[in-house]
Design a protein around this nucleic acid. Structure first.
Length: 808
DNA sequence: CGTAGCCAGCTTTTT
DNA sequence: GCTGGCTACG
């Protein structure tokens, strides 16, 4: 099949690299897609091209993303390109697809059909419940750490019996892992890691199933490949049939080819298990012959791209890639130094006001920061200025307490053995069931190895009566809601649970009541979006479908399963998952949006991590300081410093037209003022692409020019020579007087007696290098200074001992 | 049983 | 400096 046979409309306007990627032959391939290079377009056009040229039927496509947002976007775009029913295709997140797979084969996976999914919160409370039952000391083995350990094991594909424990600490954790597994299995729940691992194990251990899917998925496409973890990589390898399980009896040759799309320079999730190395492993282990680099950037001018390229060139482990543009230089990257975080924020807001006056939409202005704590001071400034803004991050809809409470009741309707939900609902709203009664109940349940709800009958006295009444109420509700619509089930549950009444009685419960009402709407739109119960997609049975009918029917292999969280009917009984169970799955797999007023034109505030994949006309990257960005926890070892640099690379490449970088001399952090040096990343940017709004200070970390208290006020960079969308204004014309914000902090002469160091002073230490005094205390021989060394962190040094050379 | 108050911790996050 | 989680008290 050649590109010419495809609809010209599909391929027009692709650049040569994009065209080559879209029309690659059916073999394994790696696409190195730079920021803003049209990656999603290539991915979706590739799928459309494969379908249109008849190389594959919709059922033969497996396209995997990390987020629901990306999956949805892919489906939307695909739907716009081709008159194909995208719901029949396996397009989704790793977890969403694993869920679908496990629902289809729940018996083989040893799960109940309506198994429910624990989110991170649920998982932690499940572990804590375990701690209570087995008297585990949370001080000695923090539950969070155990959670992390379990997740890590699953990512490595290890069950408790496979973990090698060399010390007592690990042995204990393995024991807890084992107990946790048993508890989840008994309750019929799985966590996120379990979705992946159990899918993987089922594929690994069941030859017909594996071979079926290997035959079926002729084209496997993975987005953001640099973010895959070890298990996800193994899962892909298994489905592609490359490796140990490719040919069981020598007869079967898998045909699936993998198209991995990613950018090693944008790998910023190592901390949660992502392995950039998967890209190189992929090339080696899959014998990749085709590698295409998408380096043409359609987003930014060359000042921005040169900055990004120069910065990332300081990283050592790279596959190698350089962004280019046909757009010309665009505006310079503006650099601003403030004297405090407060004034940095005020300057930013003034600058934003100016941009808005110049007709930039507020939603096209983004403020990026390294850590969430930095948003507060910015929010305060925005609020005081009456500037609408929106903060990304924080709790999402389905993670809110009131929603989780309501979901707990709904889950109990589906599965009374779900102890996590039982514990959450049993005394909320309060109904006189105390810790004492629940402890008794837990003892009984543990002794007989049954669910909490099954242990109630053994309980005597008032405790038993109260809890029994609670359970009886749930039973009645279950009876009453039989056959009702999802919407009505939820409405009845909210009513029965007393949650609405409870929050209405609370003076500050109005938002929560509103959210609970929104839950009913969410259920309604779930029904219509998922087309539950009426839109069972029937794809034409093509040659692939014909082939599939040869597979064992008892395994319930259904080409026509609808997409996303829609479950497959049971192969034997034809029984489908209840709408409620499907909705609960949806709630766990997609936590929903985190901001209510989505459409509003507001300034966008978010962490750099959260900005990945987004773009804005104007971007402010704030807090460009040693210890913050790069973060102090990531400055010492090479790998994590390189990840910080990639993070900065991501941040820079978000900007279309105008980019600001700012740092501040002082900053409030953890309740105390810190004196930060400016980020080393400034030294890695090309001088000719930058424009210093405040005077450029000498050297890395330097604030030394002219000393404190002087040297400003005359040297501000002139505002001439800028090009681009926003004509530069004459200084002062709109009242932006930078000296208001940029005035250096006067030296704090709180010096201890007997030495001449002062806070803010720059100095040199033989071992730790250049640093800056952040605090002083004591006097005479006891005088100590707290010094921030960019490469070694913050130290307290005795002035009578340490060899310190003051620097200008 | 509910809540006030105290103390520890404090990078990034999707499913 | 603020928040979330736990303890101790009313």
């Amino acid at each position: 099949m050649t590109p010419q046979t495809a609809d010209a409309g599909l391929l027009h306007n692709l650049n040569p690299e994009q065209l080559a990627a879209v029309t690659l032959p059916a073999e394994h391939a790696l696409i190195l897609a730079g920021a803003g290079s049209g990656k999603t377009r290539v991915l979706t056009t590739r799928i459309a091209w494969l379908l249109q040229t008849g190389q594959v039927s919709p059922g033969g496509i497996l396209a995997v993303t990390f987020t629901n947002k990306a999956a949805k976007e892919m489906m939307t775009r695909l739907g716009a390109m081709l008159p194909v029913n995208v719901r029949g295709m396996w397009i989704g997140t790793f977890h969403g697809l694993c869920n679908r797979f496990l629902r289809a084969h729940y018996k083989l996976a040893n799960l109940p059909q309506a198994f429910q999914i624990l989110d991170t919160q649920d998982q932690l409370s499940s572990i804590k419940r375990l701690y209570k039952q087995f008297g585990v000391d949370d001080e000695r083995y923090p539950a969070k750490q155990t959670q992390w350990f379990i997740g890590g094991c699953k990512e490595d594909g290890l069950r408790p019996n496979a973990v090698v424990a060399r010390d007592d600490e690990t042995r204990k954790k393995v024991e807890l892992y084992q107990l946790y597994e048993e508890q989840c299995q008994r309750e019929g729940v799985v966590d996120f890691g379990e979705l992946m691992l159990r899918s993987y194990e089922l594929l690994q251990g069941n030859d017909p199933i594996r071979e079926h899917y290997q035959r079926r998925f002729r084209h496997i496409l993975i987005d953001e490949f640099q973010d895959t973890n070890k298990l996800q990589y193994a899962w892909i390898k298994m489905l592609a049939g490359t490796g140990a399980h490719s040919s069981v009896d020598g007869a079967f040759q898998p045909t699936g080819c993998v198209l991995a799309v990613g950018d090693d320079d944008q790998s910023i999730y190592a901390f949660r298990g992502a392995r950039v190395g998967n890209m190189a492993d992929f090339v080696r282990e899959f014998g990749v012959q085709h590698q295409i680099k998408l380096e043409e950037n359609y987003r930014s001018g060359s000042n921005i791209l040169d900055s990004a390229n120069a910065l990332i060139s300081h990283n050592s482990k790279r596959l190698g890639k350089n962004l280019r543009t046909a757009q010309g230089p665009g505006e310079p990257v503006r650099v601003f130094e403030a004297s405090s975080d407060f004034l940095e924020a005020n300057w930013m807001v003034d600058e934003m006001k100016q941009l808005v006056r110049e007709d930039v939409e507020r939603k096209e202005i983004a403020v990026l920061y390294r850590s969430n704590a930095q948003s507060r001071v910015i929010e305060t400034s925005l609020f005081n200025a009456g500037m609408p803004y929106k903060v990304y991050g924080g709790l999402r809809f389905f993670e809110r307490a009131e929603i989780k409470n309501a979901l707990a009741y709904l889950r109990l309707l589906e599965n009374p053995r779900d102890d996590t939900s039982f514990m959450r609902a049993v005394n909320f709203p309060p109904r006189g069931i105390g810790a004492r009664s629940l402890e008794q109940l837990q003892d009984v349940a543990r002794a007989s190895g049954c669910a909490l709800s099954d242990a109630v009958s053994a309980l005597t006295g008032k405790a038993g009566a109260n809890i029994g009444a609670f359970l009886a109420g749930i039973d009645v509700l279950r009876e009453q809601t039989q056959g009702l619509s999802l919407r009505d089930i939820i409405a009845a549950t909210l009513d029965h649970s007393g949650l609405i009444t409870h929050y209405k009685a609370d003076r500050e419960g109005a938002d929560r009541v509103e959210n609970l009402e929104e839950l009913v709407n969410a259920a309604e739109s779930f029904v219509s979006i998922e087309g539950f119960g009426r839109d069972a997609v029937a794809l034409p049975v093509d040659e692939l479908g014909q082939a599939l009918t040869q597979s064992p029917a008892s395994q319930g292999l259904d080409l026509n399963q609808p997409v996303l969280d829609m479950p497959a009917p049971d192969a034997d009984t034809g029984e489908t998952l209840s709408p409620l169970a499907a909705f609960l799955t949806h709630a766990a797999l997609e936590a929903g949006d985190n901001q209510a007023q989505a459409g509003q034109d507001a300034i966008q505030l978010m962490t750099v991590h959260a900005s990945k994949g987004l773009e804005f006309d104007c971007v402010f990257i704030t807090g460009m300081e040693e210890g913050l960005f790069p973060h102090e926890n990531s400055m010492t070892d090479r790998d994590s410093l390189e990840e910080e640099r990639r993070l900065m690379y991501v941040a820079i490449t978000r900007a279309r037209k105008r980019l600001y970088l700012s740092h501040s001399q002082t900053r409030m952090l953890h309740g105390q003022t810190r004196y930060n040096l400016k980020s080393r990343f400034f030294e890695e940017l090309p001088e000719e692409a930058l424009k210093w709004i405040t005077p450029k200070q000498s050297g890395f970390g330097g604030h030394s020019s002219g000393g404190f208290g002087g040297g400003f006020g005359s040297g501000y960079a002139s505002h001439s020579g800028a090009t681009g969308a926003y004509p530069e204004r004459a200084r002062g014309q709109f009242g932006t007087d930078y000296s208001k914000y940029a005035a250096p902090v006067p030296p704090q002469r709180q010096e201890a007696s007997g030495h001449s160091f002062k806070v803010g002073q720059k100095l040199f230490h033989a071992k730790f290098g250049e640093g800056k005094v952040t605090a002083l205390e004591g006097s005479g021989d006891d005088a100590r200074a707290q010094i921030n060394f960019p490469r070694h962190g913050v130290k307290w040094l005795a002035l009578s001992v340490a060899k310190l050379t003051p620097l200008p």
